[in-house]
Design a protein around this nucleic acid. Structure first.
Lengths: 68, 68
DNA sequence: ACTAAAAGTAAAACAAACTTTACAAATAGT
DNA sequence: ACTATTTGTAAAGTTTGTTTTACTTTTAGT
């Protein structure tokens, strides 16, 4: 799975800390997400979509490898 | 967070096992999700959305309590 | 160049997702 | 009613998400 978190965050001029506060996670969680270090929970995905007012799929995308 | 998994699954006449196979998890994982026993990963949410060809938000919805 | 803010990273600890096995309860078809 | 299929549930175990603390590196402003 890939994500455009960094792009959306830039678009809103939020720091990682700003975004972390908004969705109530630690800054490291935001950082690790942007770095693709792990797959966040659906609640986090929905919260991010809510913050940026977009669909989840505009932030997160499945890769072919997710189906293997 | 709530979900309409059961409704979507019924709409497609899939058994829990069918759906489990499609998104490659155990049947118990599907069952537990439908029962709201835990929050699935974003990969699973995206796979379900893909199977049912809908947006993630048509299956999963945030509750007010998710923001507290 | 200096400084402050932001971002990257890492390890330890804890919480939660997900699997496996196994069995009981409910549902549907004949 | 009988049987097969489907669903519910539970416990133990493994894996992975998330937090906390802390330190280093990068970026931006003056």
């Amino acid at each position: 799975m890939t994500n455009n978190l960094k792009v959306w965050r830039a678009k809103f001029s939020y720091t990682q800390q700003d975004l972390a506060d908004k969705i109530q996670v630690s800054r490291q969680t935001i950082n690790a997400m942007e770095k693709g270090k792990y797959v966040p929970s659906t609640v986090l995905a929905l919260k991010l979509a809510s913050v940026f007012e977009v669909e989840v799929m505009e932030i997160f995308n499945l890769e072919d490898s997710d189906w293997n």
